Measured scan of single mutants.
Amino acid sequence: MSIQHFRVALIPFFAAFCLPVFAHPETLVKVKDAEDQLGARVGYIELDLNSGKILESFRPEERFPMMSTFKVLLCGAVLSRVDAGQEQLGRRIHYSQNDLVEYSPVTEKHLTDGMTVRELCSAAITMSDNTAANLLLTTIGGPKELTAFLHNMGDHVTRLDRWEPELNEAIPNDERDTTMPAAMATTLRKLLTGELLTLASRQQLIDWMEADKVAGPLLRSALPAGWFIADKSGAGERGSRGIIAALGPDGKPSRIVVIYTTGSQATMDERNRQIAEIGASLIKHW
């Protein structure tokens, strides 16, 4: 067993022997301040990774656009098919120029040779490549099948209805392509620590998230040296922004954090800054 596999296998073990965790309302004060600064709703939840206990939450059962955070769930569904012998990570998928959609920095470079399922998941999570996500959605049967996968996990809230990039439209009061912070946090925890996926697939999923290259201005910008984070960000229309993450000190994750916002007129930089400040408060009061 590799060191990384050992780390993920012992996530519940280490967490069980940690000192009790206590909620700190100071972080919620910052979440509410972010709402004021952005002029928009902000949803927040913080779960203990081992027990699933909610440590703090704000608007945990209000719907927010998922945006690209759905790509972690998508690759979880792909990995479940791999575990069941219905898919192979090494299978190569070929596609054409007509398949390319807006923001496809990886797939646009491989029109000639195609990409493997493993490479597509890596591109979808680490670079948020939209064509990679659409190609992977095709392998599982489309958005409705991802929703069905989530329902089978016990998540009857999260739903995907459309493809990239239309799913980022974020129309107010439109339930399409949305989740709730509580539902997303619980589902992410199941994917990373539950028995739904094999140990190898859980490790692969967290490795992809740990290698995320496009979430630097968010929670990662607030992390002290030595902290662990595996995350996936999302951005959408109407001032929408979000991030889902597993993080913790001492090089291992111990909490799940989900943050979503929508309806702001603020710039992307300002949305990023507010999420980073929430992260800084979380870490300060850990």
Results as ranks from 00 to 15, higher is better:
H24V: 09
P25F: 02
E26F: 15
T27G: 10
V29M: 15
K30R: 15
V31D: 07
D33S: 10
D33E: 08
E35Y: 12
D36V: 05
L38P: 04
R41K: 15
R41C: 07
G43V: 09
G43A: 11
E46S: 04
D48C: 08
D48Q: 07
L49A: 00
L49F: 04
N50Q: 11
N50H: 11
N50G: 11
S51L: 02
S51H: 12
G52L: 10
G52D: 08
G52S: 13
G52N: 14
G52C: 01
I54T: 09
E56D: 12
R59P: 04
E61W: 05
E62C: 05
E62A: 12
F64R: 03
P65C: 00
M67L: 14
K71M: 15
V72C: 03
L74M: 06
L74Q: 00
L74Y: 02
C75E: 01
G76K: 07
V78Q: 01
V78L: 10
L79H: 05
S80G: 13
V82D: 05
V82W: 05
D83T: 02
D83S: 02
G85M: 05
G85S: 10
G85Q: 09
Q86I: 14
Q86Y: 08
Q86M: 10
L89M: 09
L89Q: 06
G90P: 02
R91K: 08
R92Y: 12
R92G: 13
R92I: 15
I93S: 02
I93N: 08
H94V: 10
Y95V: 10
Y95N: 15
Y95F: 10
Q97Y: 04
N98P: 07
N98W: 10
D99R: 09
D99E: 05
D99I: 09
V101A: 15
V101C: 04
E102D: 13
E102C: 02
V106I: 09
V106W: 08
K109G: 06
K109I: 06
K109Q: 04
L111P: 02
T112N: 04
T112I: 04
D113T: 08
D113Q: 08
D113K: 07
D113F: 03
T116K: 01
T116S: 11
T116V: 02
T116M: 02
E119N: 01
E119R: 01
L120A: 05
C121D: 00
S122P: 04
A123E: 11
A123Y: 09
A124F: 07
I125P: 08
I125D: 09
I125F: 08
M127H: 08
S128T: 01
S128C: 11
D129L: 01
D129I: 01
N130M: 11
A132Q: 09
A133P: 03
A133K: 00
N134H: 04
N134A: 04
L135C: 01
L135I: 12
L135Q: 04
L137M: 03
T138F: 08
G141C: 02
G141W: 00
E145I: 04
L146W: 12
L150H: 03
L150R: 00
N152S: 10
N152Q: 11
M153D: 05
G154P: 04
G154C: 02
D155T: 08
V157F: 14
T158E: 12
T158R: 11
R159S: 11
D161F: 00
D161W: 07
R162N: 00
R162E: 00
W163T: 12
W163D: 01
W163R: 12
E164D: 00
L167F: 05
N168A: 13
N168T: 09
N168G: 00
N168W: 09
E169A: 08
A170E: 02
A170Q: 00
I171F: 00
P172C: 05
P172M: 04
N173M: 08
D174Y: 05
D174P: 02
D177R: 05
D177E: 13
T178R: 12
T178Q: 14
T179V: 11
T179G: 14
M180Y: 07
P181N: 02
P181I: 01
A185D: 12
T187Q: 01
T187A: 06
R189A: 13
K190A: 14
K190E: 11
K190I: 15
K190L: 15
L191F: 13
L191I: 03
T193F: 13
T193H: 00
T193M: 11
G194N: 02
L197A: 03
L197V: 03
T198L: 03
S201C: 00
R202H: 03
Q203F: 00
Q204F: 01
Q204C: 03
L205W: 08
I206F: 01
D207L: 04
D207W: 00
W208M: 05
M209R: 06
M209K: 05
D212S: 15
V214I: 01
V214T: 15
V214C: 15
V214P: 15
A215D: 14
G216M: 05
L219T: 13
S221W: 15
A222V: 14
L223Q: 00
P224Y: 09
P224F: 14
G226C: 09
F228K: 14
I229K: 13
I229F: 15
A230R: 12
K232F: 15
G236T: 00
G236A: 00
E237A: 00
E237H: 01
R238N: 14
G239N: 00
S240W: 12
S240E: 03
S240R: 14
R241F: 15
G242C: 06
I243H: 10
I244E: 11
A245P: 10
A245V: 11
A246Q: 11
A246C: 08
A246H: 12
K252Y: 14
S254F: 12
R255H: 11
V258P: 06
V258T: 03
Y260S: 14
Y260H: 12
Y260K: 15
Y260V: 12
T261E: 15
T262A: 06
Q265K: 10
M268N: 13
M268G: 15
M268A: 15
M268K: 15
D269A: 09
D269E: 08
E270V: 12
R271F: 15
R271Y: 15
I275R: 09
I275M: 13
A276I: 11
A276N: 13
G279Y: 15
A280S: 11
S281I: 04
S281R: 11
L282Y: 14
L282K: 03
I283H: 06
K284D: 05
K284S: 04
H285K: 07
H285N: 02
